[in-house]
Amino acid sequence: MEIKSIVIIPAYNEEKSIVKTVQDICEHAPEFDYVIINDCSTDHTLSVCREHHLHVLNLPVNLGIGGAVQTGFLYAYKNGYDYAIQFDGDGQHDAKYLHEMRDYMIEQNADMLIGSRFLEKEGFQSTGMRRFGIRYFSALIKLLTGQKITDPTSGMRMINRDILAMYSESYPKDYPEPESVVAIMNSGKKVMEYPVIMRKRMEGTSSISPLKSVYYMIKVSLAIFLEMLRK
């Protein structure tokens, strides 16, 4: 039986980079379907998608990154996909990894495969403060679960159908990556990492401003602790 895989691209104000992102996927991973989730962008993301006849799910209200990605999971689950990968619409991620990541995932029988910038420390390594935050989450997860995740905030994550079902049911609203990893590790799922090289974003600014990063740290720490209590 053929394996059905889909790329989930959450997009909020990505009018300049969305087409390139899709072209990258169609070129380097033609056997992957894709779907863009337009999270109520205030720019022309939607009309650009329509113009180029891209597959797009249009959210009627802004749900935040977590809600947008979850929409993609739900769509993938309902349409019978076996593997889904979350993929940024701003050009940071490289579609050439999609195929090898899926092969590796099948071979290792993993439930989730995280594209990590830090396994081989190549490419854009994020900025100083952000790296500190990533190391902090990594240490926290190691402390609580015993497993080392080098890039817990990576937005490039492939999951299988089991996890699709779990995430369709419940997924955090903002800054969802670290805590959702802990959630599935807690239920005994196999999480692995795969070395990738990420680029600096082509367009737009990161959703995480300095002030927000404080909120990010507190929110995710609390969420991870609460997640551990659920056991």
Binding site: H55, L57, N58, P60, V61, L74, Y75
Partner: peptide
């Protein structure tokens, strides 16, 4: 509701 409506519309 938002997610279901987006998927149904598609």
């Amino acid at each position: 509701l938002a997610q279901e409506s987006a998927i149904m519309k598609k």
